[in-house]
């Protein structure tokens, strides 16, 4: 797994090589339309979601099968999250939020399969997710509330003198949202995979290998948690931003 180079200077790890984008079939230039390893793993993500959600629920049973219970649990989990955080009227955006959540969740977990590729460790991917959601939610806020959406930044509960200052802080924090969304996700996933790779590199050294293998196990366990938690955090923050867009008045 670890690509290492035994040269005169000793061990050299290349923990970042796992993130290299290369064509899935044959060699060549990576154009925007090229089918790459990223494409393949996004496709697998899609297939897994299809398998679980479409094939798993095809029984339409009143008393659900095991797979259908899992599907219903995920459905209920996100539906309730939107309902509780964003409000009843936000449930019409449920499919969008569900799409984001499932993509991140499945991509994160599939990336934990050895030799796999993790799309969510690429900043281009997470930034597209983060900024896409941010722009969509901001447009939604203006469409739903018109110019009164700007009252989100004008905190009427604060003393009048402080309001401009608070507005400035609120605006900065508003525009930091997509950045924090994408950096948080990419940072967690990429860092975890780099650490795994570094441990894997040490596993090739006889003396260090027991500790390295234990380290891989421990970090892997941590990454299993991180994969789920990051998908959850991303989704819950989207719900919070959605609430701000639908109900900007404090």
């Amino acid at each position: 797994m670890a690509i290492e180079e035994q040269s005169g200077t000793g061990l050299v790890f290349h923990p970042l090589d796992q993130f290299i984008v290369k064509p899935a079939f044959g060699d060549g230039v990576v154009n925007w339309y090229t089918i790459t390893n990223v494409t393949v793993w996004m496709g697998i993500t899609l297939l897994c979601i299809f398998a679980l959600f479409v094939l798993g629920s095809r029984g339409r049973a009143i008393i659900p099968s095991r797979t259908q219970s899992v599907v219903e649990m995920l459905y209920g989990f996100i539906y309730k999250m939107i309902e509780d955080i964003s409000g009843k009227d936000a449930t019409r955006y449920f499919p969008y939020v569900m799409t984001l959540f499932l993509f991140i969740l499945f991509a994160n977990y599939l990336a934990l399969i050895p030799m796999s590729y993790s799309p969510t460790s690429m900043i281009a991917v997470t930034a597209t997710l983060g900024f896409g959601a941010f722009i969509a939610i901001t447009i939604l806020g203006f469409v739903k509330n018109g110019m009164s959406f700007l009252s989100l930044f004008w905190v009427s509960a604060a003393p009048l003198a402080l309001r401009p200052v608070i507005a400035l802080i609120e605006i900065i924090s508003y525009f930091v949202r997509p950045v924090s969304l994408s950096i948080r996700l990419v940072g967690n996933i990429a860092a975890g995979h780099v650490v795994l790779k570094v441990f894997a590199g040490f596993a090739a050294v006889t003396l260090a290998s027991p500790a390295a293998v234990l380290g891989i196990v421990a970090i892997y366990g941590l990454e299993v948690l991180v994969a789920g938690i990051q998908a959850y955090v991303f989704t819950i923050l989207i719900c919070v931003y959605l609430k701000d867009a639908l109900h900007p008045h404090h």
């Binding site: 984008v21 990576v30 154009n31 339309y33 790459t36 597209t128």
Partner: peptide, 12 residues
């Protein structure tokens, strides 16, 4: 590599 990832992400 970014356009490729973004394109396929949007498709996915």
């Amino acid at each position: 590599w970014m356009p490729n990832q973004i394109f396929w992400l949007v498709i996915t």
